[in-house]
Design a protein around this nucleic acid. Structure first.
Lengths: 158, 158
DNA sequence: CTTGAAACATGCTCCGC
DNA sequence: GCGGAGCATGTTTCAAG
């Protein structure tokens, strides 16, 4: 089952659950204009086929005391496979690194890092990230304002 | 109620719901080693006090046909408040832009953009983003590999 | 804080259309 | 494929120890 098999009703279900994962089947059915049985079957099919990977609570970062959010661009020296793999493994093990992507273009890796405050970030980036082997350059982009926080993928757009 | 009011039990609840938002109260109670009543009260308190902002289904981007994920760093010319506000408003209205942050450091804004393919991204970035008023520089970092996808904030760490 | 129970809503299956 | 009826399970609230 691929994206071509999704019809408008499937997309409405995905959209609804992406905005509120606690919707009951009857609520989804009502919102998407179908009755409960087909709605339930479709939702289950979307789950079984991996379109819906799971459900998560969204937690307020600032309430948790994680006031500092930084996007760190990292360039590594050598592009040897072993070194890249070591970097990836090390980086993924830090709880402060909440996401990490290998990127092409200006940099090699993009890390999303959270800390309680600037002191903690300075300490972490200098003693943990910076000291990983093969790091050539590092630039920290501190988040000043969340213009549009992530709330899901565009399901029905364009 | 602030972060200081969270004890270990609260953190375990947040951690559990962050990894699986569909856990039933009895399952959370079992996982966190308490009985159902206090567990239910604590969960409700975390929701009421905004620690838990909501629940969302996690959807597989690639299954949706959104194969291209790009982090775009944007520098704007003038830092006039009006121009920045116009940029923010315009950018937030694009469905392809799934998140946007104002950052300090190397760039001014960091955008997370998804498209079906490279052609669509080229078209979008050139005709929509690039043409916004006041853009000085733009660098596209294409995601090659997801090393560590975002799965929530560190709740109990450090 | 815990147990237990009652009322209610929901998830899920089955069957007929 | 759709929709409805029915049962089993889970949630939510409350009272008592």
């Amino acid at each position: 089952m691929t994206v071509q098999d999704l019809d408008a009703a499937d997309r409405r279900i995905l959209d609804a659950l992406q905005s509120d994962g606690k919707l009951s089947n009857s609520e989804i059915a009502e919102r998407t204009g179908m009755s409960t049985s087909p709605c339930w079957r479709r939702t289950r099919r979307l789950e079984d086929n991996g379109f819906i990977q799971g459900y998560r609570a969204t937690i307020d970062r600032n309430r948790l005391g994680l006031g500092v959010l930084v996007f760190v661009l990292v360039q590594i020296d050598t592009h040897s496979e072993a070194e890249a793999a070591a970097f990836e493994k090390a980086v993924a093990s830090f709880p402060q690194v909440v996401s990490c992507f290998s990127v092409g273009g200006g940099a090699d890796f993009l890390l999303q890092v959270v800390c309680r405050n600037l002191d903690e970030y300075a300490e972490f980036s200098m003693t943990q990230i910076r000291r990983l082997p093969g790091i050539k350059a590092m630039s920290s982009n501190f988040v000043l304002k969340e213009i549009k926080p992530f709330e899901g993928w565009p399901v029905s757009a364009s």
